[in-house]
Design a protein around this nucleic acid. Structure first.
Length: 282
DNA sequence: CACAGCTCCTGGCAGC
DNA sequence: TGCTGCCAGGAGCTGT
């Protein structure tokens, strides 16, 4: 599942390859992939536009195609591939939902097995991203800002997954951040100590930066713009590791359901009460 | 405001 | 072997 680090790696790839490309043709193979405007208008309006900037907001890719913006959300299984004119196989894959052909002859291919991903063409990106919370890798993500989020009477993990609070965390990096900070995922947010809030703030930033450095996590579907796998799956502490020993204390990683989501954690390092974990995270 | 439940969708898997 | 049916999961939505 592409989360902030995976989307950031794709954005880096788009900056390297797609910047300056002009769209010559738009092909939509599954109309449901286009959120807005209607698919015909979407295709019409994109032709002739040049990609002048590539950004990311939360899990959204934001491509400036003046005077509009093309936003892409990959959701569960979406993939974005930049391929050569000769690469017909990439375009013929049955899960391809939409394609952009550039004047250069190269293609941007949107592939999505589960059909949850969406493309948006809007004048103002805020129309789509306006309700997103703070960017966790920006300077705006301070302990004070996190503390305000933590005042809510909710369990900490569903709060971390709420894009209106913090933009970009998904199931993998929420679990990883909570392990890193030594906090139980079902812990009521408002009961965290100041030290724990500070540890969580650090943990979120550290985990996301490390994952970007590893080019993201490939458990199943995720690939970079050039179809490369990430490497962070090799460095995961709890996610996809249930039944295996905790790297910090050796206890067995468990799976529970929190807020309806499968959740992996270490029952020794991440206690629901305030007891000290066996060692401080680092 | 919190939160449960539903929807979208399909490959993968368990169970028979 | 082959079938059925359940499940995960991001996010938006409704209802309580």
């Amino acid at each position: 599942m592409p989360e902030l680090p995976e989307v950031e790696v794709i954005a880096q790839g788009l900056r390297e390859y797609a910047l300056g490309e002009t769209i010559e043709q738009v092909e939509i193979r599954w109309a449901g992939a286009i959120d807005r405007p209607d698919p015909a208008t979407f295709a019409d309006q994109l032709v002739g536009r040049t990609v002048t900037d590539v950004g990311r907001r939360g899990k959204f890719l934001v491509l400036a195609v003046p005077p509009a913006h093309l936003l892409i959300h990959l959701r569960m299984s979406g993939r974005l591939l930049y391929c050569e004119a000769a690469d017909e196989a990439a375009r013929q894959h049955p899960h391809v939902r939409a394609l952009l052909r550039f004047v250069s002859g190269r293609w941007l291919v949107f592939r999505d097995m589960r059909k949850f991903g969406r493309l948006y063409l809007v004048d103002n990106p805020q129309a789509v991203t306006g309700r997103l919370g703070v960017e966790p890798l920006s300077e705006a993500f301070t302990v004070e800002v996190l503390a305000r989020v933590l005042q809510r009477r909710r369990q900490i993990k569903p709060l971390l997954l709420d894009q209106r609070m913090i933009a970009g965390l998904g199931n993998i990096y929420a679990d990883e951040s909570l392990w890193e900070a030594g906090i139980h995922p079902a812990r009521p947010a408002s009961t965290l100590s100041e030290e724990q809030a500070a540890a969580l703030c650090d943990a979120v930033r550290r985990v996301l930066r490390r994952a970007i450095a590893h080019k993201g996590t490939t458990l199943r579907d995720y690939r970079s713009l050039r179809d490369e796998e990430g490497a962070y799956q090799l460095a995961l502490s709890v996610y996809d590791r249930e039944g295996q020993p905790c790297a910090r204390c050796g206890a067995t990683i468990e799976r529970i359901v929190v807020g309806g989501r499968g959740t992996r954690y270490c029952p020794t390092c991440q206690r629901l009460d305030n007891a000290q974990p066996p060692s401080q995270p680092g």
